[in-house]
């Protein structure tokens, strides 16, 4: 039992350093691919489309050698919220549906429409979280930076500083694990001096009251860390050259072209396939 291991509870922001076909892709293609798939899953209205997305995602996890339980870990904390949303959705849609309900109790109605739509909601969230997990496991932070750099390059003609925007995102991602670690430290320091953290007997209100004196020092500690990091970056000459260069010369190969094509086909299927025909 270790209720303080916050790091193990977040799968987001954790790069898995393995050498898989997905890991080897051009970061621009990877990033574009994830964005396309995430958009497709978000826009898809049909169960069949989401089913295809599920197949695509498991194929992706398989190819990138991410253990499924590791990818599912990110689901743990948002799960209650998703379920609450799903229940709301279920009754809302049922209420409005013209279908005959299979169950009624006072003013509550339950219809197949409602069940279907809350099922789709759950599935969509589930797939989005898996996609985000896969993205953060296969894209190292520097790859995200280079990926953004590649994708946003056209914007630089308009005077937009893509390098700075991507560095901001990189630092944000780099801070995720360290945020978890400092949260763990503060919670432990407070718990060992009598706060309700990790005390199974503490009530919800008692735990809620702990939140503010927890968030304030967390904020301060992270500001200090950010300050130290900024110093370290400046000391290593960050910010003088408009054009940063990178270790790897990312080129565009056959694998990249094939992957992009596969992602495009899947995205079209996910959004427009209804099981028997395409809807436009």
């Amino acid at each position: 039992m270790s209720e303080f291991e916050y790091l193990s509870k977040i799968a987001l922001g954790q790069y898995l350093p393995v050498d898989s076909p997905i890991h080897r892709l051009n970061p621009g293609i990877k990033l574009a691919g994830y964005i396309l798939l995430i958009l497709a899953v978000t826009l898809s209205k049909q169960l069949a489309g989401l089913g295809i997305a599920l197949i695509a995602i498991f194929l992706l996890l398989l190819l990138s050698q991410i253990p499924i339980p590791f990818a599912l870990r990110g689901l743990r904390s948002p799960l209650p919220f998703i379920l609450i949303l799903a229940i709301f959705q279920f009754f809302m849609i049922s209420q409005r549906s013209s279908e005959t309900p299979f169950f009624t109790w006072h003013f509550l109605r339950a219809t197949m429409d409602g069940l279907l739509s809350s099922g789709i909601l759950c599935l969509r969230f589930f797939e989005l979280i898996l996609l985000l997990s896969a993205a953060s496991s296969t894209l190292s932070t520097l790859e995200i930076v280079y990926g953004l750099d590649i994708l946003l390059r056209p914007l630089s003609w308009l005077g937009f500083s893509t390098a700075q925007a991507s560095m901001i995102i990189q630092i944000m991602l780099r801070f995720l694990p360290s945020l978890a670690l400092s949260a763990e430290k503060i919670a432990k320091a407070q718990a060992s001096r009598g706060a309700a953290w990790g005390n199974p007997k503490a009530g919800l209100i008692q735990k809620g009251r702990q939140l503010l004196p927890f968030l304030v020092p967390l904020f301060i500690v992270n500001l200090q860390q950010a300050d130290a990091l900024a110093n370290a970056m400046l000391a290593r000459c960050y910010g003088f050259n408009q054009k940063r260069t990178s270790l790897t010369d990312y080129s565009f190969g056959w694998n990249d072209a094939l992957s992009l094509a596969a992602v495009l086909v899947f995205s079209v299927l996910i959004v427009f396939f209804t099981g028997t025909r395409f809807v436009f």
């Binding site: 790069y15 350093p17 190292s140 932070t141 520097l142 990189q170 630092i171 991602l173 780099r174 360290s178 860390q225 130290a228 990091l229 370290a232 970056m233 290593r236 270790l247």
Partner: peptide, 11 residues
Amino acid sequence: QNQIVATTVEE
């Protein structure tokens, strides 16, 4: 640990 910018050693 406050000086590490990237996620891998090489980068």
